[in-house]
Design a binder for these strands. Sequence first.
DNA 1: TTAGTATGTGTATATAAGACACTAACATAA
DNA 2: TTATGTTAGTGTCTTATATACACATACTAA
Lengths: 227, 227
Amino acid sequence: MSNPTVQAEHAKQNIKLAVDNCIFTVKDGKLFILLIKMKSKLQGMWALPGGLIKDTETIGAAAQRILKQETGLSDNYLEQLYTFSQPNRDPFARVISTAYFALIPDANIELKPSPKYDDVRWYPVKKLPELAYDHNHIVKYAKQRLEWKISYTNAAWSLLPEKFTLTELQKVYEAILNKKLDKRNFRKKIDKVGLLKETKQTKLEGAHRPAKLYEFSSKKKKIVEII
Amino acid sequence: MSNPTVQAEHAKQNIKLAVDNCIFTVKDGKLFILLIKMKSKLQGMWALPGGLIKDTETIGAAAQRILKQETGLSDNYLEQLYTFSQPNRDPFARVISTAYFALIPDANIELKPSPKYDDVRWYPVKKLPELAYDHNHIVKYAKQRLEWKISYTNAAWSLLPEKFTLTELQKVYEAILNKKLDKRNFRKKIDKVGLLKETKQTKLEGAHRPAKLYEFSSKKKKIVEII
DNA sequence: TTAGTATGTGTATATAAGACACTAACATAA
DNA sequence: TTATGTTAGTGTCTTATATACACATACTAA
């Protein structure tokens, strides 16, 4: 708070602060988001995993905590998205929520439905159910940001395992941008960006020429203008 | 809030929610930001104008309210920037602040120091004083966003008056990107983007050929890739 | 040995970016 | 009235980037 004269109003403010996570992954060439099924209140509705901020943690730490709670993962791509504050977004209380978005690699993660929820599932973003609160709106926003991120930064790396083929990488782009890309032009660009290095391994999967496996030479966030 | 099971924790949360505005303008080829001088607490320090959110307003409305309070302006470019939540960012209370950034046209606005502050001033962003709280950090973030915005969207329009010359437009870009641009290439791009229309007026200012005045054919926010 | 399938590669064309210098139209002063 | 100073306004050539497009390769399975 930057304005000391309003400190007196502190006592009056009655707003809660929460975080909601948009956790994305790409699987079989399709983009998925992690949803939970609510128990009490709005029971049975699907929603983004989230929760209140603790008094001593940053919002980012809260997002991280919830991500770990639901997926067991830490050290992932996690980025603040936007803070949603419509007064009526939560019918039970005035709750302002900062949305985060996370990218996790092709998730063979077993989702252990925490006791807090009735269910936890990966949903294809193309056919989402009606979600609780303003969560459909949040997801829409997150999808746009994801599209941008993957086009202009190296964020796609976070959606892939340690080693992967160029076709797998291309499928990640196609799933998120929702369109086919030309194989040769795609590889030219990836090559020019120069963040990949060839490994000596190949991946043989099906009755055809085996594919070379690549890995990232660095995982630092970078702005790269890929597509 | 998306998680009903934590509703019980509501009573425990003790966090205040504020907004801080980064209000930019360009004047005489230089980029300025609006700062206020604080009265009580951290007295004498300069800071971003801000304040607590009201229980019934969105954060955006709060930002709008504060912008109007300080500049008298409404209907300006105003956009959410980021939510800052370091637990120790305010030494007096746990306050989480959502920063907004605003662009206003060459400000012949008279700044009426509201009774809440000791002073209100435009500061050149190149030489800012030490600011209260984490506001230097916020401003740094805002500057980056501004640079991006002006390069990839038509946001620059918001920094100019109704009618303006191409040289004035170029100066806005140069001030924000902090580098000289080539006049002919700049005009070629602006022309290609196609958002300007010529007026029949000219502007004569000094002993030289008068400049044509232009105006925007639309002020809707657009992504345009200008520079 | 053949058929089927995904991998891997190059070139030519179109579009965009960047570097660069002179004439035009005004005010002012001699 | 003429000369000087000042910013406005314009075009071309070169280089880099983007896009469109087709065939040989290396494996499995029948």
